[in-house]
Design a protein around this nucleic acid. Structure first.
Length: 258
DNA sequence: ATGCCGAACTTCGTTCGA
């Protein structure tokens, strides 16, 4: 079972490339972020024609998440992250697919920091930690996949230049501490479990020639509950997708479970 | 210190992302 996460940076503008990737990569589950489409303008028909069932939580202009399942219908278990009824951002959807609970996460970026956007990021992470604790306690196979907007460490394995990112919300001690507290509930970072060392990036900025000089970092993560981690076979990043015309600034990131 | 890019709306500039 292959589970992928892909921040598409606009599903409508990315649709031809996205459908190509779906055909080539054949994920059983695909968690999407930044679909940047209102519910009614999501390209459901094209995705179903590609052989996928789908649930999505849209928003006009920005944000928006989805879960696709090849040859089946995802059973939605959660829409929006619990804990703040006033939160209007579409950043979380969760569904069961073939007995696995899958969350599609678009964690707030938090820039500029300090400021209200950073405060929102940290508050959102606290809600995620609380919801993840409930999921974890269920002892099911769970995969929390998405754009976490956290670079886990300053190592070159995770970021092309720690000094260049030192004042960014993605590397702040508070962001990292919250991410670590989530991991320390007992979740396994799928990419690092399979690739303990070596530079693995999932995002390269459009600006300043970042892709050409491999100035990327790792912010798209798949966290596995123990029952899912026991089944972990492989993990990787479809880096080639980032080099294509009209590419997202993120590359698809995936795990396979046996 | 800022813009460097790319996309969509607020639409021939502005806002957002990371």
């Amino acid at each position: 079972m292959k589970i992928a996460t892909f921040n598409v940076n606009g599903i409508r503008s990315r649709l031809p490339r996205f459908l190509e990737w779906l055909e080539e990569s054949q994920p059983d589950v695909a968690c999407l972020q930044e679909i940047k489409a209102a519910d009614e303008s999501f390209p459901e028909a094209e995705i179903r024609a590609a052989g996928y069932g789908v649930v999505w939580h849209g928003q006009k202009g920005f944000n928006g998440v989805a879960i696709l399942a090849r040859g089946s219908e995802p059973i939605e278990t959660q829409r929006g992250l619990p804990g703040d009824p006033d939160d209007s951002h579409s950043r979380y959807i969760e569904a069961e697919v073939n007995g696995v609970i899958v969350g599609s996460i678009y964690l707030p970026n938090g820039n500029p920091q300090p400021g209200p956007k950073f405060d929102y990021k940290i508050a959102w992470m606290e809600r995620l930690i609380a919801h993840a604790a409930n999921l974890f306690a269920g002892e099911r196979a769970v995969v929390l996949a998405g754009d976490y907007n956290v670079i886990p460490t300053d190592a070159r394995d995770d970021v092309f230049s720690a000094p260049a990112m030192a004042s960014d919300a993605l590397t702040q001690p508070q962001s990292r501490a919250a991410f670590r507290r989530l991991l320390h509930q007992g979740w396994t970072d799928g990419i690092r479990a399979r690739h303990p060392s070596g530079a693995i990036y999932t995002f390269w900025d459009y600006q300043a020639g970042c892709w050409a000089r491999d100035a990327g970092f790792r912010i798209d993560h798949l966290l596995l509950s123990p029952a899912a981690a026991d089944r972990l076979v492989d993990a990787g990043v479809d880096k080639a997708a980032r080099g294509k015309e009209k590419a997202s600034d993120h590359a698809p990131t995936w795990v396979t479970l046996g």
